[in-house]
Structures are given as structure tokens and as C-alpha cells.
């Protein structure tokens, strides 16, 4: 089994969100970048397939040179090698087209991604990649088993789950449940040392055309102060919810 794990490079979840250049660019000043949290689930599941079923694991990112520490971190967690497609990831469709080239050239038959990037929250790259390659695709994946060519996949649905089956090749967009959170791997010293020697190949993009472009950003409007209600006067809360907020 040849596994490709798609790694999105995102601001740490506690980052302050600010914009520069007249609100046209994200301000990365002082921002710590990490592996997208959903992709960590995918990567950890991939490590399991490597250790238990002898799969090889390649990680890939479409991004500029600043994403390399994130790819090295994935190598330190245990991936065999890494690929960076040297392009600005401005649009999901374009990223998916770049990744499709990587999948075709590398002969991967299982692609693990996250259900969305925690920065742009597109939720589009894995599904588009699957459609471009005509691979089976399962979104919001919370369980994956592979036996030979056959995959058993669970996905989260509103109020429950669905079990699906498919043959490889397959792409899944994962989240918590794909592995348990306590099983997520963090790099250890040995992993970090080894990662330095593992191959990180930079490939040039096919320069796929974007379908969307972000013109500007806007922060959430400042909130009005919270109205405090006395704990002995919950009637007042109900009145406010009914008359003022009109939600009950």
C-alpha cells in the first residue's frame, strides 16, 4: 500500500488573527504554524498502516519554503519521505490539481487528508482531488480499515454514523475518531534526528489555474458587552431571551 498524507500548514489554534496590507493579507507576524489538527489524525492512522501492514507513507504539502518545518515535523512523526509542491496555496481547486499530479506520478492508492484546514476552512481539497482522479471518496471519516484491496470506512453523519465499503484507490478526509486523540503522535528526539536525513523533494507546480481569489478579510465585529443577570433572578433571563433576543 502506498499512502499519501496531505498536510496543510496552518496557524496554531490559539493564534491571534490579524490582517495587513489594507486587510488583504493574513498577518503571519509572530504566528506559530502547525500541522492542521485534522491532518494529524490522518497521519497517525497512516503510521498504523505502516507499522502493522507494511505501507509506505509519503507526506505532501502545496506551499512555499516556509512550510518545510511542518513537513519535517511529519517526517519526525514517522513518514518515510516528503514532497513539497512549490506553489502558493491560494485556491482549493488549484491545490487539488497540483496534488492530483503528485498522486498520479507517485502511484499512490490511498490518500489520507483532513476534513478541512483550520485556517481557510474550505473543506474542498480532498473531495476535489478524488473527483479529479476518479478515486472513491469518503468525507468526515471516523474509521478506516484496509484488507488487501478492500476498505471499510465509517463516516460521521448528523446524529450517527454510516459504514461504507470500497476498493482501493481511495481518498478519505479524516477527523477525530479516525484515531483516538490520546493516540496522536508527537515527534520524539530520535524521530527528529532521523527526520533530518529523510528525503524532502521539492517539485515545481503545473501552475493550475485558480477558480477563486480572496479579495479581502474582515475581523468579527466587536461584541456588545455581555448583559449580566443576577443568579437569583433567572426570570429576567427568560424575559430577555423572549422579548429582547427573541430566541424563545
Amino acid at each position: 500500500m502506498k499512502i499519501l498524507v496531505c498536510i496543510s500548514h496552518v496557524p496554531d489554534t490559539t493564534s491571534k488573527i490579524n490582517f495587513t496590507d489594507n486587510d488583504s493579507k493574513f498577518d503571519s507576524n509572530g504566528v506559530q504554524y502547525v500541522i492542521n489538527p485534522y491532518d494529524e489524525f490522518a497521519l497517525t492512522r497512516a503510521m498504523w498502516f505502516k507499522e502493522k501492514q507494511g505501507a509506505t507513507v509519503t507526506v505532501v504539502n502545496v506551499g512555499n519554503v516556509s512550510t518545510e518545518p511542518t513537513l519535517r515535523k511529519a517526517l519526525a512523526i514517522g513518514a518515510d519521505d516528503a514532497i513539497r509542491v512549490n506553489a502558493e496555496p491560494t485556491d482549493g481547486f488549484a491545490v487539488a490539481k497540483e496534488l492530483a499530479e503528485v498522486v498520479k506520478n507517485g502511484g499512490f492508492n490511498l490518500v489520507l487528508a483532513g476534513k478541512e484546514s483550520s485556517d481557510y476552512n474550505g473543506g474542498m481539497v480532498p473531495g476535489m482531488l478524488a473527483a479529479l482522479l476518479d478515486f472513491s471518496f469518503v468525507n468526515a471519516c471516523i474509521g478506516l480499515e484496509i484488507e488487501g484491496e478492500k476498505a471499510t470506512i465509517s463516516r460521521e453523519i448528523d446524529g450517527g454514523k454510516e459504514i461504507l465499503s470500497s476498493n482501493l484507490p481511495l481518498i478519505i478526509a479524516g477527523q477525530k475518531g479516525l484515531v483516538e486523540e490520546k493516540d496522536l503522535r508527537i515527534p520524539n528526539m530520535r524521530g527528529i534526528m532521523m527526520a533530518r536525513k529523510k528525503p524532502l523533494t521539492v517539485v515545481e507546480p503545473i501552475n493550475s489555474e485558480a477558480a477563486t481569489s480572496i479579495i479581502s478579510f474582515e475581523k468579527q465585529a466587536a461584541k456588545a458587552a455581555c448583559k449580566m443577570v443576577d443568579a437569583d433572578n433567572v426570570d429576567e433571563l427568560i424575559r430577555l431571551l423572549h422579548n429582547e433576543a427573541k430566541v424563545i
Binding site: F93, I157, A211
Partner: peptide, 22 residues
């Protein structure tokens, strides 16, 4: 909903469409 955002990227590729979520 879960189903809509699941099918949307496939639909976008089918139609060669730009896709905006959220």
C-alpha cells in the same frame, strides 16, 4: 449539512466550477 458539504467538491469538479463554502 454533512451530506451537502460532502458532495460539493465533487459537484464543483463535475461542473468545472469555482466553489465557495461557508
Amino acid at each position: 449539512n454533512a451530506n451537502a458539504i460532502y458532495l460539493a467538491p465533487t459537484l464543483a469538479v463535475n461542473l468545472s466550477a469555482g466553489y465557495a463554502s461557508n
